[in-house]
Structures are given as structure tokens and as C-alpha cells.
């Protein structure tokens, strides 16, 4: 909207200033993670960089256990919801009926149920089924939680696959299973990958069910980081190092998938 040189300079300065301001807490966290514990409590840029906090965090065997829980639960939840969503999205995208629209919207509406509204029954069910503090429990919850988004995203990606190719396969006598496996999946692979990525991001950062349903054995990184909130856990450098490691992979995933993210998070309502 601006053409003049002064305008361009103003836009550049404002854009970078705001970007750096929003990123500052993350940048400061990374910086603090390279301080020693005594330097970390002094808010200063002058310090001798050290990786001792990382070494200390990594050397705690339980840190790796928490990280492993995060990986297994995120991947497990994502794969489980994909397994249910691919057939459903396939049928709705390529063989729509009069009920397809209603089904999609109904699935979406289940996402509106606030988790806290069902905390009590889920907690009691999990207690009675022995699922409290188990990875299986969280995998099931996350798969269900993300299923509507996953179906929805896959549906929009599948719609972009030309039906002619699948039709041709069908004419050549491909059964539905092989049609999906050999024709649809390779063609829609980028879309499936970004759907999976969004699901992993959402699982990784989920902090309501993980805080309420896990304590130690199956606790992912969200729960582990929360344990730093107790007064005796006030170690800024270690908190920063553990947080940096917990955030870094998802931050990169998020940067890579920002476009698809808009599609997934708004259910295609914003293009």
C-alpha cells in the first residue's frame, strides 16, 4: 500500500521489530539455556556460554524417557487417527452421497466438545480400566481428539486428486483396497504427510489430558516441563535447556507446514 522510500523503510523497521519482539521470549530461552545456573538468574547478555545445562538435562535418564513418551504418543495418536481417517475421507471424497456433507459437519462439531466437560468421566473410566498414566491411554485420547481435523484435512486433499486416474484403475479391475493403496496414497502423499505433521504438532503440545492423566511412567514433555513450576525446581538454565529441546523439533515442523496448517485449523473456511 506504500510506495515512497520512507514508507518502505518504516514497513521494514516495523516488520522486523515486531517479529523480533514476538520471538524474543523464545530467543531469550535459548540464550538462557547456554548460561550457567548462577548466570541464568541475572538478566544480562554478558555471560560465558556453556552447554552444562544440556549435559545435565540429557544425563538424567528420565529426561530421555519423557522425550520418548512424547515421540511415541504423538506418532501413535497420529497413526491411529490416520488409519481410521483415510478410509472415511476416501469414501466421502470420491463417493459422496447425500449424507456426506452432514457427516463431515457432524464430525467437526464433535471437536467443539470442551475437554474439561468430560474430564471427570474420562478420568474415572481410565482409572477403572487401568489406563491412567499409560501411553496407550493418551494415544487413544489424542487419536480421537484429532480425528475430525484429520478426516477433514484428508478430505480436502483427496478432493484435489483427479478422479479420472482412480476411475481408470477401477476400470482395469483394481479392487478398492488396491485402488486406495496403489493409486490414491501415492498421489495424495504430500497431503497425507502434512496432515500427519499437523496431528503430530497438536499431540506434542497438548497439555490438558497429559497433565491430568499422566504423572510419571507415561508422562510426555509437557508434563515434565510442568514439574519445573514447583519452587524447588527453580533452575532457570535447566528449565531453558529442557524447554529448548522440547520445543525445537515442533518449531521446525511448524515452520515447514504453516500453509497446510491454516487449512487444517480453519477446516478449509479460510483459503
Amino acid at each position: 500500500m506504500t510506495g515512497s522510500l520512507a514508507g518502505r523503510v518504516a514497513v521494514t523497521v516495523a516488520g522486523w521489530a515486531i517479529a523480533l519482539l514476538l520471538f524474543f521470549p523464545i530467543g531469550w530461552m535459548v540464550l538462557t539455556s547456554f548460561k550457567s545456573e548462577t548466570a541464568a538468574i541475572v538478566p544480562s547478555l554478558a555471560f560465558a556460554p556453556t552447554t552444562e545445562s544440556y549435559a545435565e538435562v540429557q544425563s538424567r535418564a528420565d529426561y530421555l524417557a519423557f522425550a520418548l513418551n512424547s515421540v511415541l504418543i504423538s506418532l501413535g495418536g497420529t497413526l491411529l487417527s490416520l488409519a481410521f481417517a483415510v478410509p472415511a475421507a476416501y469414501a466421502m471424497a470420491f463417493h459422496p452421497t447425500t449424507r456426506t456433507r452432514g457427516t463431515l459437519l457432524w464430525m467437526l462439531s464433535t471437536k467443539m466438545l470442551p475437554s474439561v466437560g468430560v474430564l471427570v468421566p474420562i478420568y474415572l473410566l481410565f482409572r477403572d480400566l487401568g489406563l491412567l498414566d499409560t501411553r496407550t491411554g493418551l494415544v487413544v485420547i489424542y487419536a480421537l481428539m484429532n480425528l475430525p481435523i484429520v478426516v477433514w484435512m484428508l478430505f480436502t486433499f483427496f478432493k484435489e486428486v483427479p478422479n479420472d486416474i482412480l476411475e481408470a484403475g477401477r476400470m482395469d479391475g483394481a479392487r478398492t483396497g488396491s485402488e486406495v493403496w496403489y493409486l490414491l496414497l501415492p498421489l495424495a502423499l504430500p497431503g497425507i504427510a502434512s496432515t500427519g505433521l499437523l496431528s503430530v504438532i497438536l499431540c506434542w503440545n497438548e497439555a490438558f489430558w497429559s497433565l491430568n492423566l499422566t504423572s510419571s511412567a507415561a508422562a510426555p514433555l509437557t508434563t515434565f516441563i510442568a514439574s519445573f513450576s514447583s519452587p524447588q525446581g527453580l533452575f532457570f538454565a535447566k528449565l531453558s535447556a529442557a524447554s529448548t529441546v522440547a520445543v525445537a523439533p515442533i518449531l521446525v515442523f511448524g515452520w515447514l507446514s504453516q500453509r497446510q496448517l491454516v487449512r487444517g485449523l480453519t477446516f478449509g473456511a479460510v483459503k
Binding site: 520471538f23 523464545i26 497439555a207 520445543v247
Partner: peptide
């Protein structure tokens, strides 16, 4: 970037 930071990390930082 802040959107991808897990809530417990954001709050404690």
C-alpha cells in the same frame, strides 16, 4: 513461532 511452543514451556518461560 510462539504458536508452536507448548503451553507449559510458554507459561514457565
Amino acid at each position: 513461532s510462539p504458536f508452536f511452543v507448548m503451553p507449559t514451556v510458554a507459561a514457565l518461560v
